[in-house]
Write a protein that binds this DNA or RNA. Structure first.
Lengths: 345, 345
DNA sequence: GTTTTCACTGTTAGCGCTATCATTAGCAAA
DNA sequence: TTTGCTAATGATAGCGCTAACAGTGAAAAC
């Protein structure tokens, strides 16, 4: 293998090195490398050749400072292992791809103080825009966002007041809609199974609130509930389902706060030979691709993750010609996917 | 809710603003904000109060340029939706947490040219170190990495020559080991099911090569193979398994290139009432947490993802006192998890 | 009283690049 | 020839911060 020999192992190269190597001014090199302004073909070739030969990589720090422009878009999400955020990221990345903007991910682990730190860190790099999951932030974080002077898009929740723009679904409404569908299908003894962090996962909380609202409107209420935290969601789904059904064998519907534990529950029910959806119905939330491979399709509700990512990125990139400057609100309609685990009404 | 009113909506604040507001020099403000050097308590308080009141966020771009230090660590991975990389990220984040270093993620989508771009982009921000998945890169990318003058850690594969350091497992050996276990358990008609991108996913390729090597050493060879691309891995696992077993009903072992399709295959086999692992054995690769919730535990091999992330981050952070400066090689031993889908030898 | 020391604060000079304006050369029109 | 214009290139002045050094005053040591 022939690897090009580094001219000098270290001492970072600068524009001046390229300029000297190609016999033109630094300014001209800068123009060539950024494809800006008029440069003759001959000069351009000379410069590019020299840059390639030396292995020059521009220093964006200096460039950004001088031009006051940074092609970065910060994205602050609670978790990467959740399966739902990667899909949002896909939408963001795709949309940003041809704009010269680059997404930079930060993870808050569902902790407000950690989120505040991450936002601070991101803003200190003066990005072109910031996408943040959720509407709930520490007061300090909100103040920073409000003052940042760049487009801010809060995503995946629209039940509240945004700092600037927001894109996503109403989880309250999603919960309500699911409850209505379940009631319409004739289920009456409904239980909830979800994650054990009602104070941190605001979207799950709002979903449950909406769900209970709709139950109440029909004169019903949850007959039982079961919470978990940590571990393999699939395994936890099994365990919780078993625990709950042992405690309340009369329950006829299990509403899970996410598809993963729902899938675990479904597998458990099928193994036990329960009649799904006759004897007992199940539903999750998110519409993850995973469900396509299960023995039976779990009822769920699509959270429009891809669309959310795309729209958020479009706002940042200024691709959305709505006439509005900032303060946009885009609501997606979560679609019920009845699957095979809820009786046909 | 009382939100602090922004003094002036825009015009980014600088050190000078804080300096004027608190009546000390910019330098002293800088010292306070970075906790560096001696500053009297009275002054410190004054400055912090002013900074807070104004909502000042330091400009790291200027700071980095001046100090020639950037607290960023680039991480270049092929995909986020893969479930395996998030766990590596967890190890990296945790380890970096108390070092003042921040990971920045870039995604290459398993494309060498895209990876080259991402590496270029990252290096242009002059990070403190770079973690890159895999050992195979475009020639230009290798040249950039070699010249970067910062610690480079290639992870998740050690079958090859690193630019600088490398951390991970030998996929060739992992494949070999799995084949040996399968053969030892008495299976003879072994088929492979995997992703349809042998040229892009080098780790899957090496695993298969090692697997076939070990088969050959025992006088065997794969009796059939089936490939897929895109879509829900779980669903694809089902489909492929069905297709393959229709074509070759005599096959007695299915080796999957990852756990997700393996899980799909397992669900299919159980549904069809096949005797697993008596009549037919199954194995995947990765050791994903998901498997804990399946009706039966799929045989797999742990890829040591968390440890890999931790070790890579330690190298970058200089936490590893091996005496070696750069060029470290850390190999983890993939552990076979026999689960319930391979006969006890 | 003088010198030394120390804790604190300020001054100066860039970091590597780009915006802006100035300059030059080349060529056509007057 | 001179003028005017355009394309190509260069010179200059920062961007907002920090490293390095230079004060400053007060207390401590002589």
């Amino acid at each position: 293998m022939t690897r090009p020999t580094p001219p000098e192992p270290h001492r970072a190269l600068t524009l001046r090195d390229v300029s000297e190597a190609s016999g033109v001014s630094e300014m001209t090199v800068s123009r060539v490398l950024r494809n800006r302004g008029d440069v003759s073909d001959a000069t351009r070739e000379k410069v590019l050749e020299a840059a390639r030969r030396l292995g020059y990589v521009p220093n964006k720090i200096a460039g950004a400072l001088a031009s006051q422009r940074v092609n970065l878009v910060g994205v602050v999400i609670p978790s990467l292992s959740n399966m739902v955020f990667p899909e949002v990221m896909t939408g963001i990345s795709k949309t940003l791809e041809d704009t010269g903007l680059q997404p930079v991910v930060g993870v808050s682990n569902y902790q407000a103080d950690r989120e505040e730190q991450v936002i601070y860190e991101m803003l200190s790099w003066r990005p072109s825009g910031l996408i943040v999951a959720g509407l709930e932030h520490s007061e300090a974080a909100m103040a920073m966002l409000a003052q940042a002077g760049i487009p801010i898009v809060e995503i995946m929740d629209i039940d509240g007041k945004p700092v600037d723009s927001m894109v996503g679904i109403s989880h309250r409404r999603a919960g309500r809609k699911m409850a209505e569908a379940i009631i319409a299908a004739g289920y009456r003894k409904i239980a909830f199974l979800g994650t054990h962090m009602p104070t941190n996962d605001h979207r799950a909380r709002k979903r449950l609130e909406g769900f209970e609202e709709a139950l109440a409107a029909a004169g019903l209420s949850l007959v039982d509930r079961e919470f978990y935290s940590g571990g393999s969601a699939l395994a936890k789904g099994r365990e919780m389902t078993e625990t709950l059904l042992k405690r309340r064998p009369d329950v006829d519907f299990l509403y899970y706060s996410n598809d993963m534990i729902g899938a675990g529950g479904l597998l458990w029910c099928l193994e036990k030979g329960l009649d799904v959806p006759g004897q007992i119905g199940l539903a999750g939330f998110n519409g993850v691709e995973l469900l396509d491979g299960l023995p039976r399709r779990l009822a769920t509700m699509d959270a429009c993750r891809l669309e959310t990512g795309v729209a958020a990125a479009e706002i940042i990139a200024g691709k959305r010609h709505s006439g509005v400057i900032g303060g946009e609100v885009i609501e997606f309609e979560p679609k019920l996917q009845p699957g095979d685990t809820i009786r046909k009404a």
